[in-house]
């Protein structure tokens, strides 16, 4: 085993893996992480602790991951290329490992421009780093773990042993380059892949066909991304505004009908849509898991961690395997 993490064990066992996501708060108080960890614990194999997603300042991924660990939830720490140069990245990785973290997802990170959105002012004037990109970051982790060397070549007395993750946007443009993109991340050393949210199963399946032809599904565990829809509006927004995500009309209509059914009752509208959203998520989980080459799902219930239990149970993925 590369890392000995629970996630790695689940994948090695051949069971479909389930990961979830936990967003740390914009607060110096870690209790919210503890609360969310409790909601997720037992319903997933590991949960991503996001690294200042949308470039908004929050409790750092490493600190959040340690809190989750204390609560008995295995974390997947995230490391973006946006905020640290290779020195800070490697130092943080060593520290994270020392604190008991074993999974790390390498991502580019949302541009700082996105931090100013809605009511948030964010830090659009921040300097970004991008000393290394995602592929290179993956390579750094692998080099540290497998060769015991820093990127610069200096030796590490005790190498950090991370289960290395990377993201993939199967529906992103240019479509025909996306498999190459994935291959480069796997070549660089990614052990598991969490994909961008999948709604259009046809696009995902056709991309997976190419992945299988390239044998990539055997070199890394691909976990299909499921973003749980909560409202019809959200689906429409995801379709029109989230890069690499397209939502079939039929799904948007289903959510819209659920809303209509409630008439003017706003409370009911929310309830019906959430019910329908969970149903859709479960269907998508099935479709994704039925796709050859897929080793699990990455379920994101954004600011709705309480839904995970119901989804995982409805999808027949409960209970989660336990290892001694």
């Amino acid at each position: 085993m590369k890392s000995g993490s629970n996630l790695e064990r689940v994948i090695l066992s051949g069971n479909p893996a389930v990961t979830a996501e936990l967003g740390p708060p914009m607060s110096a108080d870690g209790s919210e992480i503890r609360h969310k960890a409790k909601l997720l614990k037992g319903f997933c194999d590991a949960a991503n602790i996001t690294d200042c997603q949308t470039a908004v300042v929050r409790i750092s991924s490493i600190a959040g991951a340690v809190i989750a660990l204390q609560e008995g939830l295995e974390p997947v720490m995230q490391m973006t290329c946006r905020d640290r140069n290779r020195i800070a990245i490697q130092a943080d990785l060593l520290g994270a490992h020392a604190l008991g973290l074993r999974n790390c997802l390498c991502i580019a990170g949302d541009h700082q421009k996105f931090s100013a959105a809605g009511k948030l002012k964010g830090h659009p004037g921040a300097k970004n780093v991008y000393d290394v990109d995602t592929c290179q970051l993956v390579g750094i982790l692998k080099k540290m773990r497998d060769e015991g060397l820093q990127q610069g070549g200096d030796k590490l007395e005790v190498p950090p042993r991370f289960f290395i993750g990377a993201s993939w946007t199967p529906g992103g443009e240019p479509l025909d380059f996306r498999p190459v993109n994935l291959k480069k991340k796997i070549d660089a050393g990614a052990d598991f892949i969490q994909t961008q949210g999948i709604y259009d199963i046809d696009i995902f399946r056709s991309q997976m066909e190419k992945i299988r032809a390239m044998g990539l599904h055997e070199r890394a565990a691909i976990l299909g991304g499921i973003i749980v829809p909560r409202t019809a509006m959200m689906l429409k927004y995801m379709d029109s505004s989230v890069a690499g995500v397209s939502v079939p009309k039929s799904l948007i209509e289903r959510m819209a009908k659920a809303k209509e059914r409630a008439g003017d009752d706003k409370k009911k509208a929310k309830e019906y849509q959430e019910e329908e959203g969970i149903k859709i998520a479960v269907e998508l989980i099935h479709q994704v898991l039925e796709t050859p080459g897929v080793k699990g799902v990455h379920i994101q219930a954004i600011e709705w961690e309480s839904a995970i239990e119901k989804i995982v149970k409805s999808a027949g993925l409960y209970p989660r395997p336990v290892f001694e």
Partner: peptide, 20 residues
């Protein structure tokens, strides 16, 4: 916008950058 050297990030949309 991110000076990536190994291919596009997930933010590409219709050939445009996630930044704008």
């Amino acid at each position: 916008s991110k000076s990536l050297m190994n291919g596009p990030c997930g933010g590409t949309d219709k050939g445009k950058c996630e930044v704008s």
